[in-house]
């Protein structure tokens, strides 16, 4: 039978453990196997799609940091004010709207303003204006996450004695905020990088689908529709690797941000 032949050639008739070992051995040689649906090498499919996703993700992280940290700082410094409630409420709202809801809705809005001329659909490179909308949608949830983290950290630092010392020294309020509050706040916030990566990898699946971007996310969805396991597995491995890599970066950065950690590491 044909199916049997395919199973045979794909090695699926061998015992599970042997299949697994073969897969791992191949992986170690940089061989992700072949796609079940197209027969192409998984690796070449991924290397075609990855640059799109990586550029998108990197820009989303930068956008998140630039927007969320200042907003969180402002909210925390004005705790329980109208401004704080507005920022916090918007963050809760953004956090609750999944990208597959935000994307289409924003696209509708976009169409209403600029009918049909420049649909933000498809990939024209990272410097193409079409990328703005997907980038914003992809950043919504990470922004919400970091705004809340930053705000909570600011409120905690505000009650620290050393902030009072800074004020008692006559340091101007803006510099108190930047040097004595923001600086210590960055330490716990940066440790959230891994969490942000997870949010972005998840979000990219939907954003790329909705906006027709040829990245790893859309590849995932196509692979899902075709039950293309080798591709799904390869993308999952890459995603996990990315998250672990970000956590590694955090571990390397942490002593630079917190001298106490640097010392305890030297001591080890």
């Amino acid at each position: 039978m044909r199916i049997e032949a395919i199973r045979e050639s794909a090695g699926l008739t061998k015992p599970f453990l042997e299949q697994f070992l073969n897969y791992v051995l191949n992986l170690l040689q940089g061989n992700f196997g072949n796609s079940l649906s197209s027969g192409r090498k998984v690796w070449s499919m991924i290397s075609a799609a990855a640059p799109v996703s990586f550029q998108l993700g990197l820009c989303a992280i930068i956008l998140t940091a630039l927007i969320a940290i200042p907003l969180g700082l402002i909210a925390g410094l004005n705790q329980n004010s109208k401004l704080d409630y507005t920022i916090l409420g918007s963050a809760l709202f953004l956090w609750a709207i999944p990208p597959y809801v935000a994307g289409p809705l924003l696209m509708v809005g976009f169409l209403l303003v600029l009918p049909g001329i420049n649909m933000p659909y498809g990939w024209g490179g990272i410097f193409d204006a079409k990328i703005i909308l997907p980038l914003i949608v992809l950043s919504f949830q990470p922004i919400a996450l970091i705004v809340r983290q930053t705000r909570a950290a600011v409120i905690e630092v505000l009650s620290e004695d050393f902030v009072r010392t800074a004020r008692a020294k006559g340091v101007p309020e803006t510099l108190v905020a930047l040097k004595h509050i923001l600086r210590p706040v960055l330490t716990p916030v940066v440790t959230q990088l891994g969490l942000i990566m997870i949010t972005i990898v998840n979000g990219a699946i939907f954003v790329e689908l909705v906006f027709g971007l040829p990245g790893l996310g859309r590849l995932t969805v196509q692979a899902l529709t075709n039950s293309d396991y080798p591709v799904i597995l390869a993308i999952t491995l890459i995603g996990s690797f990315l998250v672990m890599f970000s956590n590694l970066i955090v571990d390397v950065l942490y002593p630079l941000l917190d001298p106490r950690a640097a010392d305890s590491m030297k001591g080890r």
Binding site: I198, I205, S240, V243, M244, N247
Partner: peptide, 11 residues
């Protein structure tokens, strides 16, 4: 916790 959860569920 360190694997993107959506992908893990899919797998």
């Amino acid at each position: 916790m360190s694997v993107p959860n959506l992908l893990l569920v899919v797998v």
